[in-house]
Design a protein around this nucleic acid. Structure first.
Lengths: 141, 141
DNA sequence: CCGTATCCAACGCGATACTG
DNA sequence: CAGTATCGCGTTGGATACGG
């Protein structure tokens, strides 16, 4: 249980647990950059994530009201995810956190990637020096 | 690996990974409330945490410059941890995150625990073994 | 196309025992 | 006192196969 445990007493802890997932912030970043996106689109933008986990994360973000899920029962079905107002609110705070971290890293003499002007919410786990075969094949687009 | 992976490219992701640990924010909260504390003291304040994990978290926070570790090679040894300036900076942002989460939860009709006036950084997982009493008393600082 | 169900391997954490 | 080493188990996430 450990991290799965429903604490939810402390708002902070609660929201932190939502962002905690390894891909979560990256997904948010994709939605931020690309706007409303379909499931497959997101999956393609987040190399290495499995459908299972992507679904989990999306569901969690949805139940939190951070993303909106729009389902069209066409054939084939079309599902579109987008950031809600809460997602935007969250971004503002996250940007501050990002900025703070940047300052620290700069002070530490580490090169920071780039400022851009928006938060790039979070990159995926790097594949390079991974001990385990992290992501398998890239879905050739 | 997934979440253990060293991403460290994005500052946000980097700092998020530091806060991610189940006990991390709770430890910060203890340091916030009680001020500089010794290892055993912290451990006692975070019921259920193991020495191993506490050490890990402390080391991480230390290497990030969020907490300061002061070691006195007396017999018996005395090690004192305290928040640094970065720890304080972090708290400000974390407070905002906390506030945001509170608003959401309030809007969702969920009762929020209490406002107090400071962040109570994070309760431990309500694990089966040691259900920790959420918070102790009033903000001390 | 958008998922869900299942299996399995990796990891995280707690408990315990031991060292300086 | 302040850790470190080791072990075991629960949780998590990837891969795969299947369903709507």
């Amino acid at each position: 249980m450990a991290r799965t445990a429903a604490v939810t007493e402390c708002p902070m802890d609660w929201v932190l647990r939502i962002l905690m997932g390894p891909w979560t912030t990256y997904i948010l970043w994709v939605l931020l950059r690309s706007g409303p996106s379909r499931f497959g689109e997101i999956k393609r933008q987040v190399p290495g994530i499995s459908a299972k986990v992507l679904t989990e994360r999306l569901r969690m973000l949805e139940s939190t009201g951070i993303v909106d899920r729009r389902y069209e029962a066409t054939i084939p079905p079309r599902v579109t995810y987008s950031l809600t107002r809460r997602g935007e609110e969250l971004r503002l705070v996250l940007n501050q956190l990002n900025e703070l971290a940047r300052q620290w890293r700069a002070a530490d003499g580490k090169a920071v990637p780039a400022k851009e002007d928006e938060v790039r919410i979070a990159p995926p786990p790097a594949g390079g020096s991974a001990p385990a075969p992290m992501h398998a094949a890239e879905p050739a687009e």
